[in-house]
Design a protein around this nucleic acid. Structure first.
Lengths: 362, 362
DNA sequence: TTGAAAGCGCTAACAA
DNA sequence: TTGTTAGCGCTTTCAA
């Protein structure tokens, strides 16, 4: 097949004919073509405000740029200015979960907005890889580093991070005041529970995860706070342990029906999916017999269960975006250094059908 | 709170004390500290094979590097060498789907392996954003660009891509011989169907997507090929249209049971999930009454359905990895320029239960 | 075995 | 209004 490569052939073998596609055009060449100095070219390329360039000079330069297909060399530019427009993102698992991707996306969009580019590295949580990734970013003189994890947890901050600005995303340091952005688990747990309360439920179970984590503690606390605000006494017998996946939810159904609750708040959407299966098994229907809300808003699941699942979303996109804003000093970090992002409610039909929520007009 | 920034204070205000953390150490400083020339430092930093450096000189340099916390400046290095160690990845949707992430991961891992770093940009399929992203990558003198899409489709190749090496990932160009890496839909469709055939099914429905796409055509062809190889006549009445999500699968169940098939190949796992619901609704069980296989191997769903779903995986990770291999010239492109990656079978319990497949020993 | 010096492509004083 | 020049931090001949 024909080659699609331009740079594949050694350029020095023959004198560059005046065709395109050899060594990239430099600013100096543009300057010669336009019969001006490189300084002038630089000025027009960068649209320097306080540079007074004659209209015709400017035009000559512009033309030369177009004709030669000139592109500024960011490497050189960065070298001069001493700092690059890179932001490093090191992640422990870029795509083990659908979530991590949203962090990247949020970070990327926000970075882009301010003229920065994301340099990413995924380390699989592997320490040498992590060190190497950070080194490489440091060597590229990144503006700063976002250190992110795929689930909300305590992070062991690699020492090398201190050589630059950094912010933790979806994780936090236990013994340091390093800046961090995390989801507000407590508020999320409260919100989830409140959906149920708002629909008149008083006997509400909570299927919490078995894994110790900020999510486990935070959501439980939120659940309790919501009950308390509503004047509903907390009943520890209504809090169940469930392994945080479909099987865990399925297995928990038996206990659920035995204790006679009218609603259940599941630690995550996958658990909720298991609960759906279990409930169906025993002939109970959602939301009539039992209302359920999940957590995470894992689209593939939540939006397409029957009935679609009301849930609380994990704000991954915003986590990533807030991370770069903090990094760039666009937002101020809160006093303790950790910024909590709210987990928004996503109501669907697993608490009450749409008809009940908003009666049709006819 | 205390600042965690090093670079935040102007460094020129006072002469750098010999503490750490000011302007980063340069090679020249290392040279001075070690009382050698920068050339020598360069030699030892890069472990140049054919450089004969005295053991003690080398040690002095090493020590100075350690003491000063020197890090090479990749920007400068790249400028000199004329080319960077960047590979650009432009994606139309980094995380709308769990899939895209795997492409990134595959590309990242493979790039890393060869000393390259990924520069990523997501464009949301937005053309100006795409142009800008490519420009930026070109300006950074990337080694090449991976242009990827989140689902397998024909891509409109942006002209600017021709200024560098590039390979299409998960998409291909209609009228060009641009290099591309895509999943082998035909083989995938064949493999899915063969799972069913291997388990004795002869009357096999195919719930194909309604969306025109390489997946739609390829999987259908694979389905037909598999039937043909097994000597089963193709019956067009057994091919149904289904919108490619849970609702589509659910809706298709009625037709499915009416035509009395014993097995169904679903265009994707989400459709399969809908089929599960529908089948349960009419009291049929999987795999006893009807066997089902999906496509995509979307973990959250496939692995946790009841019973777990046998399916065929989309090789996103390998797509990304193969993309960089092609780009770097590590692998040879096939004659027509498009490399097809096999979609591996993932057997679970929706075709026959594990017991049937492998009887327990006692 | 090591050093001096040129220069990668660009920016930013400073001159003119 | 535009040009000259000195670097940015590094690699790489070429000399010593």
């Amino acid at each position: 097949m024909t080659t699609q490569k331009g740079s594949s052939q050694p350029a020095e073998s023959d004198p560059p004919p005046n065709t395109t596609r050899h060594r990239p055009t430099t600013m100096r060449e543009v300057a010669e073509a336009a019969a001006v100095s490189v300084a002038t070219v630089s000025l027009v390329v960068n649209n320097k405000k306080d540079a007074r360039i004659g209209a015709d000079t400017r035009k000559r330069v512009r033309d030369a740029i177009r004709v030669l297909g000139y592109r500024p060399n960011a490497l050189a530019k960065n070298l001069v200015s001493g700092s690059s427009r890179f932001i490093g993102l090191v992640a422990d698992a870029i795509a083990t979960t659908p979530f991590a991707g949203q962090i990247i996306r949020g970070a990327q969009d926000e970075a882009w907005k301010h003229g920065y580019v994301l340099l990413i590295a995924n380390t699989e949580g592997n320490e040498p890889a992590e060190k190497e990734a950070i080194s490489m970013m440091l060597e590229h003189k990144v503006r700063g580093i976002l250190y992110s994890t795929w689930y909300h947890r305590v992070a062991q901050v690699p020492a090398a991070l201190n050589e630059t600005d950094f912010v933790l995303v979806n994780c936090f340091a236990r013994d340091s005041d390093a800046w961090a952005v995390v989801p507000d688990e407590v508020q999320g747990g409260r919100a989830a529970t409140e959906i149920l309360i708002r629909h008149g439920h008083r006997r509400i179970a909570f299927l919490n995860t078995t894994t110790p984590s900020p999510a486990r503690d935070g959501r439980l606390q939120g659940y309790r706070e919501a009950l308390e605000s509503a004047g509903i006494p907390f009943d520890p017998n209504l809090v169940f342990d469930a392994y945080p996946d479909q099987e865990g939810g399925y297995a928990a159904v038996e206990g659920l029906v035995q204790c006679g609750v009218t609603a259940v708040f599941c630690h995550n959407d996958r658990v909720a999916m298991g609960v759906y299966d279990g409930l169906r098994q025993v002939g109970m229907s959602i939301p009539e017999d039992i209302a359920v809300v999940g957590f995470d808003n894992q689209e593939v699941i939540a939006a397409h269960l029957r009935p679609p699942l009301s849930t609380v979303a994990l704000p991954h996109y915003r986590l990533g975006a807030a991370g770069v804003r903090l990094l760039l000093g666009l937002d101020e970090a809160p006093g303790n250094g950790v910024l909590r992002i709210v987990c928004p409610v996503v109501e669907r039909d697993s608490v009450s059908t749409r008809q009940e929520k908003a009666p049709a007009n006819m």
